[in-house]
């Protein structure tokens, strides 16, 4: 998901640059042909200097815009990475949010309030113990609890979708409490609203 997003963003940036460079050729020929039409040498030189400085300013603006886009991209990427690493953990067979979970969710909520274009999928997961069927309901309850908390925090319900994976997508392998604890979680997928 992250890769796709990155690609989309870099593709958008690339397109912006290409679009700018496409505008360039029509400008230059006109400027170059002008001196030939006007025979006075000094007016030609002045026009050239003026054109040069215009060109420089334009390039500078372009550079600044690219830098701004790059910074924006980096900022968004950082936020998305932050959201995607903000896993919320649960106790065995429980869907209640722990204090630690609530702390993480307030950070998530802050980001979502700051970036109204972000829409998220909350995925609920369980550890490997128990049946596939019951764990589907447990994963769904966990995702739902997270959604409810964020909704109460002010994030619009239409920006959040919940999905249960039950025990099917463990983060950590192994049949020990350490792995189980890692897998009893809810995590986030982020998309950018168009």
């Amino acid at each position: 998901m992250k890769k796709i997003l990155l690609l989309t963003i870099s593709a958008a940036t690339a397109f912006a640059i290409v679009a700018c460079s496409k505008n360039k050729p029509p400008v230059n020929p006109v400027v170059k042909e002008e001196p030939a039409a006007v025979s006075a040498e000094d007016s030609a030189a002045a026009a050239k200097a003026k054109a040069d400085s215009l060109e420089k300013a334009r390039l500078e603006a372009e550079r600044l815009e690219a830098e701004r886009l790059e910074a924006e991209r980096a900022r968004v990427e950082k936020l998305i990475n932050e959201l995607m690493s903000d896993d919320v953990y649960f106790d065995f067979d429980k869907s209640e949010l722990t204090e630690k979970a609530k702390e993480i969710l307030t950070q998530v909520g802050d980001i979502l309030l700051k970036e109204p274009r972000f829409v998220i999928v909350v995925e609920g997961h369980t550890d490997a113990r128990g049946t596939e069927d019951y764990n589907m309901t447990l994963g769904s309850k966990r995702a739902m609890k997270v959604k409810e908390f964020l909704a109460a925090y002010g994030v619009g319900n239409d920006r959040m979708e919940t999905v249960s994976y039950g025990k099917e997508k463990p983060k950590a392998a192994g049949e020990n409490e350490e792995a189980y604890a890692q897998n009893r979680r809810a995590n986030f997928k982020v998309n950018i609203k168009k």
Binding site: D133, M136, T137, S140, K141, M144, S164
Partner: peptide, 9 residues
């Protein structure tokens, strides 16, 4: 079948 709908399954 079981369906997740609203807050419950």
């Amino acid at each position: 079948f079981a369906a997740i709908h609203g807050n419950t399954t």
